[in-house]
Design a protein around this nucleic acid. Structure first.
Lengths: 151, 151
DNA sequence: GATGAATCGTTCATAGCTCGAATGATTCGG
DNA sequence: CCGAATCATTCGAGCTATGAACGATTCATC
């Protein structure tokens, strides 16, 4: 009768979802960063690639909004990815203020490799979970993302 | 037969658990930071309070290890919390190199308030989830935390 | 007991990341 | 045609967290 809530967890903020999400997120991001370091990119770069990769070529403003960062940061990230030969900037003929960002063939390859490594990391992380739990977790993260103000 | 995997998710890294954990973590942390801002503390302070609050009084080195940060950062955080009157440093009589960190009565109150707000945030975030899903999520986060290298 | 090595807390300088304001080019609305 | 708005870019600044030095204290070995 005493294990209705089997929580052996500490009862401080450290035990709450909000807090744990932060610490685990930081840790996992660090691990992902280490996993793609040799490719010359960091998580933010991968995020940019991913945004560009899925969907129509977008302006840097759009990308910034989607990523939840400031446009000036997109400039820096895009500069570095362009230098890697992963993306290219094309002046939008319809509105020549805009730069439409697109993946180069090398960019597609890079994105695919990053995706593969992210998936591998997922496998490691969820090794201790059942398939049903993974699905629930995956779905819950989607809900949380929207709840936290993501597109 | 085509919805064996009902994933409408994008297939880039953005859709992976590892990546989403990072972005959601950052977002949630920002929201928690805003929630406790008027108390004069930031998430890292709350983490420190939480570590001190649960368990025997620990040295700053121990706290640093538990939090996964460098000892010099604990100095800064402890300074600010001490100035708030939330914690106190006591020279360990058994080993006078050490400072044992302890919560003051005000510190207990502050920690309790932070805990309450973290729980309230949890409620908001998981509003769209069933009770069973919340439990699974909670458990899964514990597994991930250990898997990612947390105590 | 003495003495060199190790540990604890602290200070300081520094690196990394991100933001915000200012600028120039371009487009839109009246 | 002209002022307001939008886009990309540059530049400077802020904040966090780190790592290397340093004094105080303890430990281990002789």
């Amino acid at each position: 009768m005493n294990d209705v809530k089997p929580s052996q967890e500490p009862d401080g903020p450290t035990g709450t979802l909000a807090f744990r999400l932060g610490t685990v997120g930081t840790l996992v991001t660090a691990r992902f960063a280490a996993a793609v370091e040799d490719l010359g990119v960091k998580p933010k770069h991968v995020g940019l690639l991913s945004v560009i990769g899925s969907g129509a070529p977008a302006s840097q403003q759009d990308v910034a909004r989607t990523m939840g960062v400031v446009p000036s940061l997109v400039v820096t990230l895009a500069d570095q990815l362009e230098e890697l030969g992963a993306i290219e900037r094309v002046r939008d003929p319809d509105d020549r203020r805009r730069h439409r960002l697109g993946l180069t063939p090398e960019g597609h390859t890079l994105l695919a490799e990053c995706t593969a490594r992210a998936r591998a990391l997922d496998e490691e992380l969820t090794a201790g979970l059942s398939t049903a739990e993974r699905d629930t977790l995956s779905r819950a993260m989607g809900v949380l993302a929207r709840e936290a103000g993501l597109p």
